[in-house]
Amino acid sequence: MVKRLTPWILAGPASLLVLLLLILPVGATLLATFADAKGWAAPYLAFFNSGFRRTVLWRTVEISLITTVISVILGFIAAYVVAQMPGRLKSIMIIAAVFPLLTGVVVRSFAWLILLGKNGILNSALLSLGLITEPISMLYTEGAVIAAMVYLFVPLMILTLSGVLEGIPKDVLEAASSLGAAPFAVFRQVILPLAMPGLIVGAVLVFTGSFTSYATPQLLGGERQMMMGTLLYQRAMVTFDWTGASTVAAIMVVVTIAIVLVMTRLARRLNPMAA
């Protein structure tokens, strides 16, 4: 009896915290959007009737997916190399990877202004090399937003994966290579499946993180690259319209859950062994 309950006892406190402090309170907030006087779906119809808001939703999905793919690839490469490093160097690299997360969004975007701005380092370099004749505007574009988000999420990917790659026993790899497997085959058939749980978790964390981000797109994309987080913020904190804000939030939650489930399914199909 006790044995059958063990899993629930272990997972219980954490589940309870999420249930009591998240599912119930947030659920109540989101449910309130269906109490609209004009019919339960009215706020949602109003949202989707606006071409502008549909564009924002689509842009948010697009930017988040691109950010996730790039962060997963770059994070995996970096984490793989970190995992091979000797002790001291490995610690230093992990700390270096964490540092970007510690910078405030305003100073960070200031750094981007210095690097990519009209009079920034990159433009000056290109100008003095004669590659361009006039400064190119690299900021306030979708590319700028993606770059800034990748910068923020690669560290998260590196940290998540370093714990996983660390756990892959050395002898597994050695056995594979000594049996004559080509490096790519070792990667495809040994490392990738073993790293898959970490890749899935990392991808989910990055995707949800970028989907809800607000300050970075506003500072580096401006109004031209508005994302869902900004719409939500405007409703909640500027016009005090919490029904409107909760409507945006509900749409965000549903879309994110759907995409996370699809992502997990796909990853599982690629590798049935992984969680």
Binding site: G209, T212, G229, L232, A236, S246, A249, I257
Partner: peptide, 8 residues
């Protein structure tokens, strides 16, 4: 907890 927008 990280999927629900923080403000909400």
């Amino acid at each position: 907890p990280i999927l629900v927008p923080e403000i909400v």
